[in-house]
Design a protein around this nucleic acid. Structure first.
Lengths: 147, 147
DNA sequence: TTTGCTGCAAATAGTTTGCAGAGAC
DNA sequence: GTCTCTGCAAACTATTTGCAGCAAA
């Protein structure tokens, strides 16, 4: 696990280096994204920040996410149903395991993925630049609920 | 490769069995989806069908795709940028390799995926029901163009 | 002081829905 | 003849954009 405090500082510094101003709203958004456990949605970020910034607008959240994406410091997880979740802790492509009931997202360790990438490249003659791997299922907590 | 004529007949028959009427528009949409080479978008299907059905509306294409999805006979590939592509030839989850330049989609054979599914299940304690695996890169044709 | 940021409201794009007439069965 | 489907237009939702005032540097 990457140190989250350092991750926050790293992103803020990168913004400074690129000539962006550091506003309180911006700091708060980066802070939420830098926390590793969550894979928050825009809506989720907005609701959280409304507590500290009652005037915080969705547009500001969106604009900042666009900025952080452009710096390559957040991974956007868009899903077919239109929902979007963000991972600012590990901004590079990596597999996700998603509970279809409680929407929890877990990051598994999968060593065999690099091997698979090579397999695909050699089979299809593509130059592989990126990937996306999601598993959908039911987490143990939701299974225990038997709802 | 699944026989495409049979695939078309199969979907049409399944519609009949479920009490849906077989209209010319419906037949044409199923026909396009049953063809294996393409992974068409809604827009793409609509444009193709405008030739034979000048009054064909986007809504009809959407409604029919919803129907075919509900029958489990088309795989929807929604991408983070909002684009959607459909695979009516292989409606079950399978890996895709996508060229980011020409948008071509290829289906590679990957034996190791089942193994990975088990690995994830045992590591995360999830019951895995579904998955999505996409590789993004540049196909050999686009690389040769050197544009 | 300068320049970029916030936050409101309006615009946008893809998709869905309501409804009246047409068509499958 | 019945009931679903089509196709138009309007509604909807997530996201983006324009702009005036505000705040960081």
């Amino acid at each position: 696990m990457i140190n989250q405090k350092n991750r926050y500082e790293f992103i803020i510094q990168k913004m400074r280096d690129n000539g962006h101003k550091i506003t309180p709203q911006r700091m708060a958004i980066v802070n939420i994204l830098a926390v590793g456990e969550g894979h928050p949605s825009v809506e989720n970020i907005h609701v959280q920040l409304k507590q500290d910034f009652p005037t915080m607008s969705l547009a500001t959240v969106y604009k900042n996410i666009v900025l952080i994406k452009s710096l390559g410091e957040v991974l956007e997880l868009g899903f077919p149903d239109g929902s979007n979740r963000y991972d600012g802790n590990k901004p590079y492509p990596h597999p996700h395991v998603i509970c279809i009931k409680c929407k929890k997202i877990v990051d598994p360790d999968l060593d065999s993925l690099d091997e698979m990438k090579k397999e695909v490249a050699s089979e299809t003659q593509f130059k592989i630049l990126n990937h996306r791997l999601d598993f959908f299922g039911i987490c143990s907590a939701c299974m225990a609920e038997k709802v």
